[in-house]
């Protein structure tokens, strides 16, 4: 999984222009899908539907944005979906027991973050490959959630809390604001901070990164913790949007999040990719589902189409990247 250190020669800074071109291609692809859908379906281009797509994309984006950082370090976090489920269930219980949404939100974020931290410890201190460590974590979390929920459903939360997921502000859904905020923070963090640059460097070449004095283990801990915390955030959005939580909500979230990261142009070998790309990846996935619903296409076709898009996106990405280099 982790050969290729050969395209990891360029220093982080120079990725910006390269990435800009890649992002442009990707935006073009998203716009192309939009154009096709607009021709096929009258309702697609309505403002309502566009906001609708953005809101649906936000859940995938929150999970995928944290995951992007992990993938940038050449790691992977398979436990994000299970983490969302556990965090949602625990946060929901806290809100029910204390009546305080703020406390619930904090617990949800903390639970997600702690799980992420544990992943980070397994990867750094125990030196278990991230793929396997987080796969193990996935089952441990599932077991915990199943035990904790015992087949029950948590539902019915305060109206104020539910505004986070389903409310509007100046005509825009609140999750869309959150999406923009985290898109901004994520991009600034990755591109403009030293820590962000160090994460790129670790992914590009861990040995070189260590030799140049980057505290690799601490940065990895940070990255997994951030990924877990973003899963915690997604759990809050989920909870407030659906007004309920049950043990199996995470299962359908992991693979779309990974797909969004990959469609967005982040390389599994680390060191290459952007949070903005991941946003477009999430958008493309959501557009396809939205289009299929609007056109009443049988859901049987959905995995097939998604699979083709993942391969096409990554292949085109590599093609264009080679040409520009």
């Amino acid at each position: 999984m982790t050969d290729i250190t050969k395209d990891a020669i360029a220093p982080p800074r120079s990725f910006l222009s390269q990435d800009a071109i890649q992002l442009f291609y990707r935006l073009l692809a998203a716009l192309l899908i939009c154009a096709v859908l607009a021709v096929l379906s009258d309702s697609f281009l309505s403002l309502g539907n566009i906001l609708n797509v953005l809101r649906q994309a936000s859940l995938t984006f929150f999970i995928a944005s944290g995951l992007t950082l992990v993938v940038l370090t050449a790691g992977l976090d398979l436990s994000v979906g299970a983490n969302v489920a556990l965090s949602a269930c625990i946060a929901g219980t806290v809100i029910h027991k204390t009546g305080s949404p703020a406390l619930g939100i904090l617990t949800g974020l903390a639970c997600g973050g702690i799980v992420g931290l544990l992943n980070g410890i397994m990867v750094t201190a125990l030196r278990i490959p991230s793929f396997i460590a987080t796969y193990g974590m996935l089952w441990v979390l599932n077991g915990l959630t199943y035990w904790y929920m015992a087949g029950e459903t948590l539902h019915g939360f305060p109206a104020g809390f539910r505004q986070i997921g389903s409310g509007y502000l100046f005509g825009l859904p609140i999750p869309v604001y959150l999406l923009l905020v985290f898109l901004g923070i994520g991009t600034l963090f990755a591109q403009r901070t030293i820590w962000g640059q160090e994460i790129y460097a670790i992914g590009a070449n861990p040995v070189a990164a260590r030799l140049s004095g980057i505290p690799v283990a601490r940065r990895l801990l940070l990255v997994y913790t951030v990924s877990g915390t973003m899963a915690g955030l997604a759990s809050i959005i989920f909870l407030s949007r659906l007004n309920s939580a049950e043990a199996d909500i995470g299962e359908s979230l992991t693979l779309p999040a990974i797909a969004a990261v990959l469609i967005g142009g982040t390389s599994l070998f680390g060191g290459v990719g952007t949070v903005f790309g991941t946003f477009i990846g999430a958008l493309i996935l959501t557009l396809v589902l939205n289009g299929m619903n609007l056109l009443s296409v049988s859901a049987n076709w959905q995995p097939l189409v998604t699979g083709i898009i993942v391969i096409l996106a990554v292949w085109l990405d590599m093609k264009t990247r080679r040409r520009t280099q």
Binding site: S43, F44, N52, Q56, F238, N290
Partner: peptide, 12 residues
């Protein structure tokens, strides 16, 4: 979640 999204899309 799937039902919610299907419904949102159908309302469009």
């Amino acid at each position: 979640l799937q039902a919610l999204q299907v419904m949102e899309n159908l309302m469009q």
